[in-house]
Design a protein around this nucleic acid. Structure first.
Lengths: 230, 230
DNA sequence: ACCTGAACACCGTTCAAGT
DNA sequence: ACCTGAACACCGTTCAAGT
């Protein structure tokens, strides 16, 4: 009689060390980010979580940037693409999808920072691009303009989320914001007439109100700016 | 006869250790960035360059982010604001100034990355904002729209430069770009009809042509999108 | 092929102690 | 007030050696 249950050779107190796989590594990385933040998702810390040494991860992931890109692609699954079919005009639906994307990144602003540099190319990203292109097409934005415009829409949304990453590291960010506020409001009307004229208008509005206006102005810009390059 | 030339108490082989000052630290930091790149402008490396320990720098600079922001503010002095007075229509001059800003950041894309997070507020930055606001005003962009629009213009320029920082670390970036190209061009017409319809159009155009179109569409968007929030 | 220990070459930041 | 040595708590990545 051969034993049906192979005795697990559990090392340490963990319930059995699972074999390393790409998917397993990324899943653990996402979990680690959710519990400890992206700044803790390092090769060393992740290896520790997987009960191995950092060198082992390099069999599956080229470097830290690639690891972060993979995490982002996972996260993009949370973007609410159903907004594309809501009962609103195409502009409103476009703004909704973009806002959902921005909100997902807002939860992890440091990831947004890396997203600017390491663009993903997985299925969730493709689905997002497709949804945006469909809405632009529905709104009558000419193909050539939609092709370049979709990039700008995502770039601005990503950059806006990335900017927010300062506001996390509370204290410094506050100081920095105060410095900018003081500089803008204290500008002299002789040397900086336009800054002085606009004054607090430059800093006005909630982040939400600003973002909505920005998305609308991008859409209008894409719709009304012909490509003259070719 | 008293000696007229005081004997310098030179430590090591350096020609006399200058006293630390904020300006001296930033000047050395800028120089270090120019010779070795921003990734080498660390507290430790900079301290070494100044012939002291890293702890000494914390008397003048709160942290690494603040150091990088100070470097950026210095660099903004290189933006060519004379373009604002060139013999072209206001849109063309606006595009010129923005392009000059982008080019300055292009030389140091990792600095652009940090610029997204740690916005400067020094005199060079104020001069740039003032120049942009003056051009928007000249073009008849309503104040409320100019106030929010100037932020978007700078954000997009900064983000575009930051994106380029990948293209420096040559090999990975190429792989990543190839992955995106393959994903976009390989998209199925049934699952991703719009991506398939646009195809290579999505990746077309030189960076310069794209950027010029982007600036023009931002200007048009700002000009034609009223603020309805208040 | 996959996995690993160990090493190399670094980091930011704090703190007690000096001048 | 300014400066410092030393320490704490980390990093990414490579490589030779194992299985």
């Amino acid at each position: 009689m051969t034993p049906q249950t192979p005795k697990p050779r559990s090392r340490r107190e963990r319930p059995a060390k699972p074999a390393l796989t790409y998917d397993g590594i990324i899943a653990t990385a996402v979990q680690l980010m959710q519990t400890e933040g992206l700044q803790r998702v390092t090769m060393r810390r992740l290896a520790q979580e997987l009960d191995t040494g950092p060198a082992s991860l390099y069999v599956y992931v080229r470097n830290t940037a690639e690891l972060h890109a993979a995490i982002l692609e996972e996260l993009l699954g949370e973007v609410d693409l159903r907004q594309a079919k809501a009962a609103r005009d195409w502009r409103g639906r476009l703004v909704s999808v973009l806002t959902s994307y921005t909100m997902v990144l807002f939860e992890h602003p440091t990831l947004a920072q890396s997203a600017l540099v390491a663009r993903p190319s997985g299925k969730n990203y493709l689905a997002l691009v497709e949804a945006l292109l469909a809405l632009l097409n529905e709104g009558g934005v000419p193909d050539a303009q939609a092709a370049w415009g979709v990039d700008v829409l995502l770039q601005v949304a990503t950059a806006t989320a990335a900017e927010q990453s300062t506001r996390d590291r509370a204290v410094d960010a506050q100081d920095e914001h105060d410095a900018l506020t003081a500089a803008l409001l204290g500008a002299s009307a002789t040397t900086h007439p336009r800054i002085a004229a606009l004054g607090s208008e430059l800093l006005s509005g909630s982040p939400e109100a600003r973002l909505e206006w920005i998305f609308r102005m991008l859409i209008n810009g894409a719709l009304h700016t012909p490509r003259t390059d070719d």
